[in-house]
Design a protein around this nucleic acid. Structure first.
Lengths: 237, 237
DNA sequence: CTACAATTCGAACGGTGTTCGTGAACGAAC
DNA sequence: GTTCGTTCACGAACACCGTTCGAATTGTAG
């Protein structure tokens, strides 16, 4: 019945029961390692447990469910976002910098975007980021309600961009892979029937431009922040 | 061995082998019905097959995989988006209308957002929508590259908003449920340590406002489109 | 040393997407 | 009219998934 009956010699290490106690941190560590190595799809309760040399049931004493683990991963990554000290004279550039940093973090931890999308980030680190953004927006005299909704909008945008990137180049795409994918898409647009899709055909090049670098993202930042700046009461700027 | 051995009488209908031929359309129909009735989570190859009185393997002759089925669902829904005829004088309002219509469609088909997020929509119907948006943007004299990237940005935003809504009220949330959820979140923000999170605490109300109606979405539209309008060369407006 | 609460974790439940190989159905060729 | 070849339906299985239950094991307070 007993699967590991007895080990009469060398009693120092009876196989495995050295029992390094499990805790949230070790679990998130292990999950993060899998996320970085193998992408988000690979982060399952089973794989995390396995990499800690235990069974999936053991995790549930420390983490409510997979969703909570996802949130913990997001918050761990959010710790790396650079938080400037609000400066009224540079608020627009500071906001852009924060969002660039957020995208960088999500790119560096591929899969975090997939865990973050569609969830209001409520972890400690994520709240630090929200607080810093609010400070910058208020330094720029953006009205309260506009600032609050702007946070939501900007967060949604960055996450969606990162998510899109992480879906397309699921894992291990080279620059050449991306280029040939984009070339294929451009060709697809360009060879549509021009009578039904005149603009799409004419703009096939523009529609597929900037898939690699940051131009597209920068464009979004520029549009949103200039739109936001237009909401600052005129007498305050 | 044979589970349905023989039916000696009434040879007209031997149980089921009447063999209404399977095809893409019938599969998408069935999937759409499940999506509307039971939400996106319920759309599995097995359930779709079951509702067609067959096994999951049968679907793979007509649909490459679940991802492709998701795309087909998205395109089916995209057919309902209202497409205006571009009018230079009203381009901003027309663009907003299209995006409102898109959000409406995604709300009416809860779960479509989950299938659409992170995928460039390439179906026939989705392309009609892209073409119409391009027409409106060009009617508004938005430069080519800006128009192309704007499409991407706006699509990302609408989908992300719809996705967020579909995740939070997973299914069957009443207005009261949403309100108490929002109240809880507002309380959470408001009771954070005010020395570390001064802005978050002060703006707790604003941060949680507009979760129910369209104000938040309208805000995003307003910001993005006014930011976009700023990119029209001054001499052309 | 005992009792109790917390933690660990094997086993199982009920799902998932996808593949394989059998076999039936059907149009074309002889 | 019979055979052939191709297409398509589909039962069974594979390898997973998140989560729960209950028994065993531990650390700690009394």
């Amino acid at each position: 019945m007993n699967p590991s009956p007895w080990q009469p010699l060398s009693p120092e290490k009876p196989a495995r029961p050295a029992r390094t106690p499990l805790n949230r941190e070790r679990i998130v560590d292990a999950a993060m390692r899998i996320l970085l190595d193998q992408g988000y799809e690979a982060v399952s309760m089973r794989k995390v447990a396995q990499s800690l040399e235990t069974g999936p049931a053991s995790l549930y004493a420390h983490v409510a469910n997979k969703r909570e683990l996802d949130q913990l991963l997001v918050d761990r990554a959010a710790a790396d976002i650079e938080l400037p000290v609000a400066d009224p004279a540079r608020w627009q550039e500071q906001l852009k910098d924060m969002l660039r940093s957020t995208l960088e973090v999500m790119r560096a931890n591929p899969g975090v975007a997939r865990a973050a999308i569609g969830q209001v980030p409520l972890g400690e680190r994520a709240l630090d980021s929200t607080e810093a953004m609010l400070a910058i927006l208020k330094a720029g005299r953006v009205p309260d309600q506009a600032a609050a909704w702007a946070i939501d909008m900007l967060h949604l945008y960055v996450t969606a961009v990162a998510f899109e990137e992480s879906v397309q180049g699921a894992s291990g795409w080279t620059v050449d892979d991306v280029e040939s994918f984009v070339a294929g898409m451009r060709h697809h647009f360009a060879s549509l029937p021009a009578d039904r899709y005149p603009f799409t055909v004419a703009l096939a090049g523009a529609l597929t431009a900037g898939a690699l670098g940051d131009e597209r993202f920068e464009f979004g930042l520029q549009v949103m922040i200039s739109g936001l700046a237009a909401m600052v009461p005129p007498e305050e700027r």
